[in-house]
Design a protein around this nucleic acid. Sequence first.
RNA 1: GGCGGAGUGUCCGAGUGGUUAAAGGAGACCGGCUGUAAACCGGUUGGCUCAGCCUACGUAGGUUCGAAUCCUACCUCCGCCA
Length: 399
Amino acid sequence: MQVRPNNEQGDASPGSRARAEALAVGSVEALPARRLAQQLERGTPLRVKLGIDPTAPDIHFGHTVVLGKLRQFQDDGHQVVLIIGDYTARVGDPSGRSNQRPMLDPETIERNANTFQEQAFKILDRERTEVRFNSEWLRMEPENLLDLLARATVAQLLERDDFAKRMKAEEPISALELLYPLLQGYDSVAIDADVELGGTDQKFNLLFGRSIQAAYDRPQQSVMTMPILPGTDGVRRMSKSFGNYIGVTEPPEQMFGKVMSVPDANLEEYWLLLLGEPQPEDGPNQSKRELGRRLVERFHDSAAAVEAEEHFNRVFVRHEAPTDVETFSFSQDPVHLPAALSDAFGISRSEARRVLGQGGVKREGQVLPSEQLDYPAAELDDHVLQLGKRRFMRFRFAD
RNA sequence: GGCGGAGUGUCCGAGUGGUUAAAGGAGACCGGCUGUAAACCGGUUGGCUCAGCCUACGUAGGUUCGAAUCCUACCUCCGCCA
């Protein structure tokens, strides 16, 4: 592991150092120190790696922090290698929990990988992106896999802080999880990575990749960690499984609305991580609105941004129905309201009754009484029913 | 292979024969206040043909007037020893 095929010592020119510094803006760490400047000294484009397991199809704002940094590398003339972890996803990455995730079938992975790529290109430059699937090299002969396993020690793997904690807490660590860094590290060997990016939570894996590269007598990559974006709850990291994410393909109104629901305390972070600018000094409401507009603009367009804000004002400030309410057709007469609400909004009938009992159902802005459960069709036909604050549906009688 | 421990509602977690649809918390939802922020206040939170009924405490059986609680088998997970 002491092999140093390329000289890690040596000085970089001031120019390279300046460029390395510029590339590191906004990152948490760039390791080892000065390594990136040295790599830049070569004068040839670097191969910058990002690995993603396509367990969910959607890219959310959390991903865009790292993707934005990749884009910066591209704009500087470097080559991005996007690795889709189709192999690792198929095996079923157990990361974190004791309950193993259901294995994903190949079709789902394929589909996720495709939509994921498409969405990634909303940020990345397609021309300077090489997309690779890691099954290409990880689906290897057992002898080769064993050879890979022989190149790392258990002690190295257990160094990981996270594992130590979980051992102590008597939480399970699957063997696969333990080996995961090896597989990820091998990705770096396979694609000759010069730089690997990831969130701060990836620090161990990224650095482990360096060890693996060295074990294969390859030049070692440098690593750069990016801050983790908190979710809309302001507490946990943004993640699909926590339901606190904003997806890059969400419709403008929804995107804007979710941005508005981010706690004030996280605004500064959102500005820096998503726009790369400090939050303006014009009050939380204003700067949050601007953040929302700019993000909608980025992922849709400026007209959509204006409309999204108008929608927000209409529905949540003035408490009016949105302009484009979906239509729900019903054919019963009289209508049993709990049943209709259940069908229209996808909730259970019991829940519909409860909400109704709490004054949470309105017809054209008027609260419907909880006692009345049945209505003549004519009294609902062509009326907008509202469930809670944000769910609307236009009822239409169709026989 | 041996020994020990555990599986409860969306999640965490109490409950060891009887007002238990199951304490408490988190989350979520509704209402109030408001900037769809936070904080705060009140309410709800299995389903249904809803003053009643049905289904629920890993799975399948059994004991009992009555079980999440006792018994048997099985499944899954964790730890210790080898």
